[in-house]
Design a protein around this nucleic acid. Structure first.
Length: 892
RNA sequence: GGGCCGUUAGCUCAGGGGGAGAGCGCUUCCCUGACACGGAAGAGGUCAUAAGUUCAAAUCUUAUACGGCCCACCA
């Protein structure tokens, strides 16, 4: 809670006006539609389909993160010259929306059952009109460059047709079948729930040991004892199982027990499912209310007795138990056993129970008639394209997770007993028994002419979501040859959260392989899940959630996006760190100010090529070339924290801290030619840097670009060229680092000394430098103006023969001794202490290296360049140590 | 039970065989003509533990502990 103040709403909003202005300008200029290509990627499409957010809600941190990732990818591709488009849409989210609308109606005292299906669906559409637009507005607010002119919805008419077409196709090809199976039933939502939609939670409960009387005693034993966590389901027991490996139990096989309360005679049989070590070794079998029991029932032809209705109340025919809900029935059954003297004992246990992922009601395994997809034929191709690497996961380890998911896949229950969604296109004739699936509605039976009825149920939302990548590209009208599909399928990137890897990602691949015969996307980014600052999932009940809209106000869109991307590492979770956003906001401000500095120093500027004549210019251009290469590599590997880190350290620690600082004396100097060179390089580097920054910080960079006097392909940075690493390669030269290193060493050395002795930066100082060789003398001499400016010196000389002055502080750097004249200011004790501390450290390093060299194996086995590096290092350290000893002697 | 991720500075996290890094926080100084959302200089770490591989391990291997996630699930 210490950090709660950070998310308080701020009154004024300094960012919104600028963001809205720029966003509208992009929008008005048509930048968000499919862009024409240019350059070497002129004819290549680059497409992303957004994972359609549910219409139930508003943007949460997961969306903010995912949308930042996608926009970074698509903006970079656009600048690289691809024909880009980011396709937008929302999902009707069957059960989730229905639950919300149900609750909203209930608050007004209205029940969905009273108003009927049609009115309820209308209420859902009203809901969508109100809330479905919110999230798109928020996506706009984040500056996402989606194609807002062509928004899709999973219940659009042509989308509905697409869903029906696939259902009909699969039905006719035997891939969809109807079956009575045990499903996970939510008594609260009144619908089946897919296995992977169920959530397991640990619950403290009991294991009840119940006595089941034998019809005839076995070896004098009158009853057996079973252990159960669900005593109420005994009403539906139709057998008792023992393990075939349990020698002591074999004598019971074939015997019968007389089930108390219901007085049903049920058989004892053996089945390999039973674990003889658990409980008593006797398992009560309730085929209708447990998936494993169901399977045993199938194997042993047991009767299936359903004791619950859809609300999980006991059905008629069970006397006083009828009408009770599960919990009441449990108590009553246990009480009855106790009364009959058949309750042996009770144990405490903790076990996991299935709950509904929407309403968290305990799910009831319940036998009912449902529709299923036979996944066996679908999973082969979906497996192959990932196994063969046609589809790449980022991070790569998700490949295995995907394959494991597919390998363990069981038939998929696709019918839901809901109203909101794609109604199952099955039509039945109650008169003659005709039935068929149809893409269009059918009124009369083609067989007997009677009126037909449509299936009441709707399809699992994921059934419609699996069509998303191609259903929104005109598949309904054009099939797999639809123009957009031909042009830009497969898409390049799908970015999503890890929890819907199987539910959605794998199913899209299956559907796409089936319908299009192609993969839907080439790259799948599985981004980390945003956890609260406490490391736990964000949730209302925990109160650890953060609203991205508030963050946007506080840090600006640029700050929020950059700060989120900084946290996108290869890990599976991300402990949300608001400091990173604050940091990024400050970075955005730094960029703004650096640009301001450059722009206000442009009087007399004429455009021209950057030139790498002086050491600093060579250095910054080399660093820029290196940056472009690193940023490209990071993007290509989808390593977003790497992208931001490279950009941040270049812009702040190299460009601002040193290049701009060095440029001040040049811009104020008398050398007009050097001044122009400096201006041109400042403009060039700034221009290239904001291009690289644009995908992560679209607004501030667009704002700066507008004012930059550079040649532009477009008025808008978002439509301009991405820096070309190959072109900049000519500037790359690591050897130019040494002059700058020498110069910055001198400057830093003087500053450190100032700081140590409390000498104001305003007080100019005298400095002499002794260099190891004439080459270094030349280098430093050539940087003298920069050094004098940055270190504020009144006198500066450098030579190989410089004598150490009487009263001075000495700073040692590789190849240099820097003498800072202190004329009586030095506290000799402090200086001695500092040198000694320094020497201790150096001696430690020397000892470490000498030990290394005394090791014969190192000399024979290590790579020569490593040995040479260490040898140089040792020599340097020894030299430094000797020089420190000299000084200590001088000071004694 | 199977699998995955993590354990590095006070905090949040990078790095990934050959001299421990960033941001925040902390200490000292500075509202210097781009920026105090800033600048300069500092302090701070046996890289979870143990064994192994190697000339060399924070980094690779294997175990262990702790934290977390996913899948399967014992009635």
């Amino acid at each position: 809670m210490a950090d709660s103040k950070k998310t308080e709403q701020t009154e004024e909003n300094e960012y919104e006006a600028m963001e809205t202005r720029i966003f509208n300008a992009w929008n008005d200029a048509g930048c968000f539609k499919r862009t024409p290509g240019f350059g070497k990627h002129k004819n290549d499409a680059y497409t992303i389909v957004i994972p359609p957010p549910n219409i139930t809600g508003k943007l949460h941190m997961g969306h903010a993160l995912n949308d930042s990732i996608q926009d970074a990818c698509i903006r970079r591709a656009r600048m690289q010259g691809y024909k880009t488009r980011w396709i937008l849409g929302t999902d009707h989210a069957g059960i989730a929306t229905q639950a919300k609308v149900d609750r909203a109606l209930a608050e007004k005292g209205i029940s969905r059952l009273e108003i009927g299906r049609e009115a309820f669906i209308k209420a859902c559409y009203d809901w969508r009109a109100e809330y479905g637009t919110t999230i798109v507005k928020q996506i706009r607010g984040m500056g996402c460059s989606c194609d807002y002119s062509d928004e899709h919805f999973t219940l659009d008419p042509d989308y509905v047709t697409a869903v029906r077409r696939l259902f009909v196709d699969w039905y006719h090809h035997g891939l969809i079948y109807r079956g009575k199976k045990i499903v996970n039933w939510c008594p609260h939502c009144g619908t089946a729930i897919a296995d992977d939609e169920a959530e397991y939670v640990n619950e403290k409960s009991h294991l009840w040991y119940l006595r089941y009387p034998l019809v005839k005693p076995v070896d004098g034993q009158k009853y057996i004892i079973i252990a159960t966590t669900r005593p109420e389901t005994m009403l539906g027991d139709t057998g008792v199982a023992v393990s075939p490996k349990d020698p002591e139990k074999q004598k019971f096989v074939g015997a019968k027990v007389k089930l108390p309360i219901v007085n049903r005679e049920i058989p004892i049989f053996s089945d390999y499912y039973v674990d003889q070590k658990f409980g008593t070794g006797f398992v009560k079998v309730t085929p209708s209310h447990d998936p494993n029991d169901w399977a045993m029932g199938e194997r042993h032809n047991l009767e299936k007795i359903n004791i619950f209705d859809g609300r999980a109340h006991v059905v008629d025919g069970y006397g006083k138990f009828s009408g009770m809900d599960r919990d009441e029935a449990r108590e009553a059954v246990v009480a009855e056993f106790e009364k009959l003297g058949l309750l042996d004992h009770i144990e405490d246990i903790e076990h996991s129970v299935m709950t509904c992922y929407r309403c968290h009601t305990n799910l009831e395994p319940w036998e009912s008639e449902q529709w299923f997809v036979d996944v066996d034929k679908l999973k082969g191709p979906a497996r192959k394209v990932v196994a063969d690497g046609e589809i790449q996961f980022h991070p790569a380890r998700w490949k295995k997770v995907y394959l494991d998911w597919l390998d363990n896949l069981k038939d998929w229950c696709i019918s839901r007993q809901l109203w909101w969604g794609h109604r199952i296109p099955m039509f039945y004739c109650d008169n003659c028994g005709w039935e068929d699936a149809s893409e269009t509605d059918i009124d009369t039976c083609p067989n007997c002419g009677s009126k037909v009825r449509q299936d009441e149920d709707v399809l699992d939302t994921w059934f419609s979501s699996q069509l998303w990548p191609f259903a929104i590209m005109g598949w309904t009208t054009g099939g797999k040859d639809a123009p957009e599909i031909k042009e830009c399928y497969p898409t390049q990137v799908l970015s999503t959260a890890r929890d819907i890897m199987g539910l959605w990602v794998a199913r899209m691949v299956m559907a796409s392989e089936y319908c299009i015969g192609e993969i839907p996307f080439e790259n799948v980014i599985i981004h980390p899940t945003v956890m609260g600052a406490d490391g736990k999932p964000m949730s209302k009940s925990r109160g650890n959630g953060v609203d991205p809209m508030l963050l946007k106000q506080k840090y600006g869109v640029d700050g929020m996006r950059f700060g989120l991307l900084m946290q996108v590492t290869g890990a599976q979770d991300l402990k949300f760190n608001e400091d990173k956003l604050e940091n990024s906001r400050n970075f955005a401000n730094k960029i703004k100010n650096a640009a301001h500095f450059v722009l206000m120093n442009l009087d007399g500027y004429t455009p021209g090529e950057p030139t790498a004549d002086t050491a600093v210019d060579k250095w910054i251009l080399s660093r820029l070339a290196h940056l472009v290469k690193k940023v490209d590599e990071a993007y290509d590997a989808y390593e977003f924290s790497e992208v931001t880190r490279e950009l941040y350290s270049f812009f702040w620690n190299e460009f601002c801290d040193w290049y701009i600082e060095f440029s001040k004396s040049r811009l104020n100097g008398d050398d007009a030619e050097d001044r122009l060179t400096c201006q041109r390089n400042l403009v060039f580097v700034l221009d290239q840097a904001i291009r690289l920054l644009h995908p992560t910080m679209p607004f501030i960079t667009e704002e700066i670009f507008d004012q930059l006097p550079v040649e532009k392909r477009s008025k808008f940075l978002m439509m301009c060229d991405w820096p070309d690493a190959a072109v900049l390669q000519k500037y790359y030269d690591p050897s130019v680092e040494r002059p700058i290193k020498l110069a910055t060493d001198v400057v830093s050395g003087v500053r450190a000394t100032r700081s140590r002795y409390g000498i104001s930066p305003k007080q100019a100082m005298k400095v002499s430098v002794k260099a190891a060789d004439t080459q270094d003398v030349d280098i430093i001499e050539s940087q003298r103006n920069l050094i004098i400016g940055m270190a504020n010196l009144s006198a500066f000389d450098v030579a190989t023969t410089t004598e150490k002055p009487k009263e001075c502080s000495v700073v040692l750097c590789p190849g240099l001794e820097i003498y800072i004249h202190l004329a009586g200011l030095v506290d000799l004790d402090a200086e001695r202490a500092r040198l000694k501390k320094n020497q201790t450290k150096i001696e430690k390093d020397i000892a470490r290296l000498e030990k290394k060299f005394s090791n014969q194996a190192f000399l024979t086995k290590a790579r020569p360049e490593i040995i040479q590096k260490d040898r140089d290092n040792l020599a340097k350290l020894k030299d430094e140590s000797a020089r420190i000893s000299e000084q200590l002697k001088d000071l004694a």
